[in-house]
Design a binder for these strands. Structure first.
Lengths: 221, 221
DNA sequence: ATCCTATGAATGAACG
DNA sequence: CGTTCATTCATAGGAT
């Protein structure tokens, strides 16, 4: 976006205090976080299931051109089918933390109806699921509790949504360097085209979620 | 947002033009709309079906709910800035193979001074760096030992003919003894030339989507 | 546009 | 269990 920051004297200007600025900043940050989380969630939820023929990574599930039967590709490791995953997640979600040996066996049998699978696969899956879930949680907590060397400028906004492993987000982008004011809001000091760092600020497929009508808005600053 | 500007004389103030203000307002408005839509969407979806909370990457497909029918750009991934890369390489070069946990956090903070980054990014970077470093080493050694046995370029093959039914390397990986699972030559729906394939999803703990910390901000404007 | 390569990210499996 | 490894997927950026 271009903005003639020079010559405020000629324009009608608004003034806001630091306090207001802070509120604004938080608001935007909160929105960014919310959007990000919801988006992730939405993606996760729209991605199933039975009626889908394609499900692997790399498959385009609704490519109209490819109703696609299964093609066979050599694969060395087990990959849960969507159905299996669904069941696994469901069981995991029940909170019964440690699937016993018996349980594993039972689950395996259940899952085998939906694709090749072994007890080891199930076992590993739960191990990984738990471990990764925990790691994320820990990371989140650490970020919330510790302050450490918080750079006052850039991390101010980021702090609010540094959850999980997402590295969002839109908020960091909101202000433009040459606006002639409000510079304390910058989150990124990089040249937009050269570093590539800026790219990550995009809303993930936001135009997909939203209509085009927002295109002009979300990166304006 | 109120712009009383009270006490400008005593406080540090920021100034923004009407134009900037308008853009800001639109930005926030867009956020609000987005959040709202996503929220509704989410509620609608959780209303019925499963509690599937995690999905595999690769299945972000055209969502029937979304009217927007244009090409979408997936979320972009983090890219280290030159400075960050330099620092990372330096740390990696020190040979301390395992920067894990606390170290990661520290590094992340350090790097955040040079651009947006998250702990996961750092973690991934080291994982990849190690793995690829190792792979190259191995590859080099192999190339030295074996003369030209096979003029095969693995990387080239991967991209172009993944459809072949080749199952290479009769996986020495042992599966569960009792179930005797030799397994999973899974079908993979591979469409070499796909259209607007996009982003991947990741699932994080969807259980606790909105933290309390955002509630206070959500409706400020 | 198309293809290629480098690399960030996801994840099953293995290790201590 | 918590960490780490190995393999694979997907994408950004460059070359053709």
């Amino acid at each position: 976006m271009k903005m003639s920051g020079k010559g405020e004297g000629l324009m009608c200007v608004k003034v806001m205090t630091d306090e207001q600025m802070e509120v604004l900043r938080k608001q935007i940050s909160a929105y960014a976080t919310i959007c990000d989380r919801l988006l992730h969630m939405h993606k996760a939820m729209t991605a199933h299931q039975d009626s889908l023929s394609g499900m692997r990574p790399g498959s385009l599930c609704c490519d109209p051109l490819i109703p696609s039967g299964h093609k066979i590709t050599g694969r060395q490791r087990w990959t849960p089918t969507p159905k299996q995953l669904q069941i696994l997640e469901m069981i995991f979600g029940e909170g019964n933390g440690t699937p016993s040996k018996q349980k594993i066996k039972q689950i395996t049998i259940e899952l085998s109806h939906h694709g090749l699978i072994s007890e080891t696969n199930v076992y590993n899956w739960f191990q990984n699921r738990r471990a990764r879930s925990k790691r994320k949680q820990t990371a989140t907590l650490l970020n919330h509790n510790e302050s450490e060397v918080e750079p006052e400028f850039e991390s101010g906004m980021r702090n609010l949504h540094e959850n999980e492993n997402t590295q969002l987000s839109a908020a960091g982008h909101l202000m433009e360097p040459e606006t002639g004011g409000m510079q304390s809001i910058h989150a990124s000091n990089e040249n937009p085209k050269s570093s590539g760092n800026v790219g990550q600020l995009a809303f993930y497929g936001f135009d997909q979620i939203m209509g085009k009508e927002y295109e002009g808005h979300y990166n304006l600053f």
